[in-house]
Amino acid sequence: MNDHSPPEGMSAQSPRRVLSPHLQVYRLPLNAWISLLHRITGLLWCLGLLGATGLLWVVAAGQGWPAAQAALGSPWGRVASILAIYALWFHWASGLRHLLFDFGFGFAAPVVRVGAWAVPWVALLGTGLLWSWMG
């Protein structure tokens, strides 16, 4: 934090300061929400990656696959899978947008807004596509 001591020559008592409101009052633009969700979906997939590595071990070891299958096929397993797939597509689409920014594309204000709107819908599209692909 800052040095709040008063300049020399002023009273030795340092004035009382408080922190101004921030997250509590800021009206975050859509882009900031997408950015936050990019982070959350990324964190979720750190867990997902752990799970995927575990499943790969189950397949390699040849033991416990029926149990894993049962867990994935249970109602909760299905819900979790669909959410995970949606989160992955979300992170994918938002990440693609970030890559474009890094190359210097898409900084014009309308493009930023349309792009931010597109991310959740692209993720939905990807999830639906995968769904129909799997039949």
């Binding site: 934090m1 800052n2 040095d3 709040h4 004035p15 300061r17 408080v18 922190l19 101004s20 409101p21 921030h22 009052v25 800021y26």
Partner: peptide
């Protein structure tokens, strides 16, 4: 609603420390 710039030490009312 008028507030000071966010996450700054407030000196008084709408005046924040920007040093």
């Amino acid at each position: 609603r008028v507030l000071p710039l966010p996450h700054r030490p407030v000196i008084r009312d709408l005046i924040t420390d920007l040093s």
